[in-house]
Design a protein around this nucleic acid. Sequence first.
DNA 1: TAGTGTTACATTGTCGACAATCGATTGTTC
DNA 2: GAACAATCGATTGTCGACAATGTAACACTA
Lengths: 233, 233
Amino acid sequence: MTTEPITPLRSSDALGEIANVPLGERIADQLRQQILDGELAPGTPLVEIALASELGVSRAPVREALRILGLDGLVETVPYRGTTVRGLHRRDVEELYRMRALHEGFAIRRIVDTGRHRDLAELHACCDAMAASGSDARALNLVDERFHATLIELADHALLTTFWRTIAMQVRQVMAMCNRQIADPMVIAANHRRIVDAIASADAQTAITLLEQHIGDVIDQVLNEWSRGDARR
Amino acid sequence: MTTEPITPLRSSDALGEIANVPLGERIADQLRQQILDGELAPGTPLVEIALASELGVSRAPVREALRILGLDGLVETVPYRGTTVRGLHRRDVEELYRMRALHEGFAIRRIVDTGRHRDLAELHACCDAMAASGSDARALNLVDERFHATLIELADHALLTTFWRTIAMQVRQVMAMCNRQIADPMVIAANHRRIVDAIASADAQTAITLLEQHIGDVIDQVLNEWSRGDARR
DNA sequence: TAGTGTTACATTGTCGACAATCGATTGTTC
DNA sequence: GAACAATCGATTGTCGACAATGTAACACTA
């Protein structure tokens, strides 16, 4: 658990964004990154005083950070016992993806129902980027993430966005543990393009069916990888 | 904002449940109760030091409690600005109920798909209790809550349960602000019974349609009450 | 008066120290 | 040797005080 001292730099990047972010949030960002990248494996205990001394801060902001991560569903806290990186069982993974399909399907229906299916430029761009990603697995993952995030954004539903954020976070955590490349970028790009086309022609039902098929495939592949690789937790 | 000193009693009720619950959680329970009962109106600022002195504790457990309530979606916290009881706009209410319909529909499909639609005794009992609730609005609300909670439980999906808990919490908050009695208990009981029957005959699609209709009606009534009564926040 | 800089205050963020709790280890008794 | 009680160490929970931040009121300038 090599947790480097946090950078005292402002965490913002956009111009003019000089908001002062509390220590706790910056620590949460850093730990989240490590969890999502697989550096902090599921089950790893996150001891407050240890993290505090490693980061050169007191326990208060560390507690704050652990609370935030709990809100993201990335850690589990038991009173008087401590906090650990959440272990993902086979069942959790399956539930996660079914939930994801449910929410994205809802997003599609909403996009069509509210007539927002004519502004799909960003989604098309994502498909193009997927096809062009070649063998760069990292780039493919990023684009895929952007595609689905855009889908949710288009639905224009704050509560949906909140829930989906939690789901996407855990999905990313799962992906980090499936190191092996999953599928052919061209196939993935084609799958997504079919979904976008169905949305564009206001055919929500077809789009949802395609999406569920796609996610169903991903579940199979991930779970396959899961049972073979390591019985984590 | 009459916040009474927290009871030092163990918060448990079940026999033998002598688990020691941290102060923060007990404070969260108390504040949640007040928010859900409408005692703490949306927009009410929750000042840490004020709550701490009122409750006779330090700020640490109060902060903890506010964090927990944030996780429930009942309060909003802005860094360096403070925490307030979440204001519910018309749009939030609409999003909330659509989300609820989505999740309960998912639960129904899952109950049917996994063949769990033969153990609906509890749901039937709820319908009976609804019909028998007469003019006791409070009792009707409680039974309604139990009905939908049971539906979610039957789906046997941990992540769904987590999400639904948040939704149910906010629904209860909305209900607390719609003081006027919404509808005839007998009608509500009949509506629910139709849904249960459809589930029992493994007809998920019909059950979901009925559910969506039912929730659609509730949305209309609540939003109607909403726009007339008070333009809260 | 409109606009700007400054100051004061209320509130949250952070810190270090102490108390409470849990699990395991050790010691004791039969 | 097994069952039970006391003890210990590790960790979280709670506390009070101080620092950092943001808002609003105020004085000042043009």
